[in-house]
């Protein structure tokens, strides 16, 4: 008679202890998120409604949605948005397709030099973006000394202003970016391919499916979770592009490589116009959230335990 409530009590206590211990285990990560991410984010949100230049030491004046109005009526913002979308469209699909092709090509266990290839293709991922951008600005140097123009001269093509021609500058930035991150995408796809049960391919082979059919009807559908993962992380990071354009072109020529973060950096750190920068940041954050929500719907990601 007496033992049951005791057992109950014990279980409740145990459960309580377990919950407490779990929270303690979460604490380090979330304390850091709280102090170093959430507080600054809330601060940024708050500032977006104020007319504030932190350098001027004036008290911030509440200005309602004035900062947002300034952002959206600024033609440079729309150019930057267009450039960022161009960058995203120029890099994400390219990386996705090339990365998948590479992963498929290197998926054969008997391929000679497989590991060397994987290492080489991954090499740019580990180099620093600053160093990569410096080296690539030499590659794209307008004089005929640049590697890119040396290559063109092999085919008797006149040297091009890779970074000084507004029609080419964004392309050059995209080339660097694809080069830099292709290995990452390849690696994730390789991992995804390893997760596909071999039996499925064997079954496909028995049914007389061609290589292409196998890829089309087995590999690609089964890679959906992987593709979703890559797409989300790649799109998010493509909207944050900055170092490349900052080092190679400082956003020029004209505004042709000015991206959203270039604009944010310029407003926030060169002009210290925190109101504008914060409003831009908030707009960017909300659109990224929205974009990942759309992607989830498109990929029916809710079905993919994520």
């Amino acid at each position: 008679m007496k033992s049951r409530p005791v057992a109950e009590k014990k279980r409740v206590l145990y459960r309580l202890g377990e919950v407490l211990e779990s929270y303690t285990m979460l604490a380090p990560a979330y304390v850091i998120f709280l102090v170093f991410i959430f507080v600054p984010v809330v601060w940024a949100f708050y500032l977006s409604f104020f007319d504030y230049s932190i350098l001027s030491m004036r008290t911030p004046e509440f200005s309602g949605i004035d900062n947002f109005r300034r952002v959206f009526s600024d033609p440079v913002f729309w150019t930057a948005l267009k450039n960022t979308v161009r960058y995203s469209l120029g890099t994400v699909p390219t990386r996705l397709v090339l990365g998948l092709l590479l992963a498929l090509a290197l998926d054969q266990a008997n391929l000679w030099g497989r590991k060397i290839f994987r290492t080489i293709y991954f090499l740019p991922v580990v180099t620093s973006m600053v160093a990569a951008a410096i080296v690539w600005s030499l590659v794209f140097s307008a004089s005929n000394n640049g590697l890119a123009n040396q290559f063109l001269s092999l085919f008797d093509v006149a040297p091009k202003g890779w970074l000084s021609d507004s029609n080419l500058a964004m392309f050059s930035v995209c080339v660097l970016s694809v080069w830099k991150d292709l290995g990452y995408v390849m690696t994730i796809f390789t991992a995804g391919l390893q997760g596909i049960p071999l039996e499925l391919y064997e079954a496909g082979a028995i049914d007389g499916a061609t290589v292409w059919q196998r890829i089309r009807f087995i590999t690609i559908p089964l890679l959906r979770p992987t593709t979703f993962f890559i797409l989300v992380t790649e799109i998010i990071s493509s909207f944050q592009v900055f170092t490349q354009t900052y080092v190679m072109t400082s956003g020029g020529p004209g505004y042709s490589t000015t991206t959203l973060i270039n604009l944010l950096h310029n407003k926030g750190f060169v002009q210290f116009d925190m109101g504008y920068a914060s409003a831009l940041a908030v707009a960017l954050f909300i659109s990224l959230l929205f974009l990942s929500w759309v992607l989830r719907k498109v990929f029916k990601a809710d079905e993919i335990v994520y």
């Binding site: 979460l26 944010l264 960017l284």
Partner: peptide
């Protein structure tokens, strides 16, 4: 909620929080 908060941190460009973070 905690998991989504962790995911949300991935969507915040560093430059967005750089100045408040500097002040923190």
């Amino acid at each position: 909620l905690l998991f989504y908060l962790a995911l949300a941190t991935m969507m915040i460009p560093f430059y967005v929080i750089a100045v408040p973070l500097f002040l923190v």
